[in-house]
Simulated scan of single mutants.
Amino acid sequence: MTSPAVADGYRLVDGPPPVDDYLVIRERSGLSPRRRDQAEAAVRGSWAAKHVVEESSGTPVAMGRVLGDGGWYFHIVDMATLPEHQRRGLGAAVMAALLADIRSSAPPGAYVNLLADPPGRALYLAHGFTDTAPYSIGMARLV
């Protein structure tokens, strides 16, 4: 399978970024900060993950992960790009690669979902996601 195109000067990498970079990308891109133990469990528990590295510095600058059971449910999470690297198609490349992984491994009819915060909605719509309301709505609970 061919990797989705990524902007010049960047490289798409299979797998999550290192934990320290994962934490930095989350926080600097506006996602809620997490503790190191949470990040370690998160990257270890991914069904699939991709990240983008800036070639000149070797720094991870964008990422995304999939949580899933490998058969029916796939939930896309942690889609994030460092602010200074946004608007270069890096998020689109990560999303395309994650969806390609799902298409190549999941049975037909698999359910792929995500929670769409305002900054990512245009990206998700461009990749075929649609609003599920009023049929279903996202719900959450902290423990």
Results as ranks from 00 to 15, higher is better:
Ala42Thr: 14
Ala62Ser: 15
Trp72Phe: 14
Gly64Tyr: 01
Asp101Ala: 02
Gly58Ile: 11
Ile25His: 04
Met95Gln: 09
Pro60Cys: 02
Ser105Thr: 15
Ser57His: 09
Ala100Glu: 14
Ala110Ile: 10
Val112Ala: 01
Gln86Arg: 15
His51Leu: 04
Tyr73Glu: 07
His75Met: 08
His85Ala: 12
Val52Ile: 14
Gly109Phe: 13
Ser29Ile: 00
Pro33Glu: 02
Ile102Phe: 14
Thr81His: 08
Arg88Met: 14
Val53Met: 07
Arg35Glu: 15
Val112His: 01
Glu27Trp: 05
Asp69Cys: 05
Leu23Asp: 01
Arg34Lys: 15
Glu40Tyr: 00
Trp72Cys: 04
Asp69Leu: 11
Glu27Pro: 00
Asp69Thr: 01
Val94Phe: 06
Arg103Ser: 14
Ser104Trp: 06
Pro60Thr: 02
Ala92Thr: 13
Ser46Gln: 07
Arg28Thr: 10
Ile102His: 10
Lys50Gly: 03
Leu23Tyr: 01
Asp69Ser: 07
Ala41Met: 07
Leu82His: 08
Arg44Asn: 02
Gly109Trp: 12
Val43Asn: 06
Ala48Asp: 12
Pro108Asn: 10
Gly71His: 10
Ser29Gln: 07
Arg36Glu: 09
His75Gln: 14
Asp101Leu: 02
Ala106Asn: 08
Leu98Thr: 13
Arg34Ser: 04
Val61Trp: 06
Met63Ser: 04
Gly70Leu: 11
Val53Glu: 15
Tyr73Trp: 13
Glu54Trp: 04
Asp78Tyr: 03
Ser57Asn: 09
Asp101Ile: 02
Pro60Arg: 03
Val77Asp: 01
Arg26Asn: 14
Arg44Gln: 12
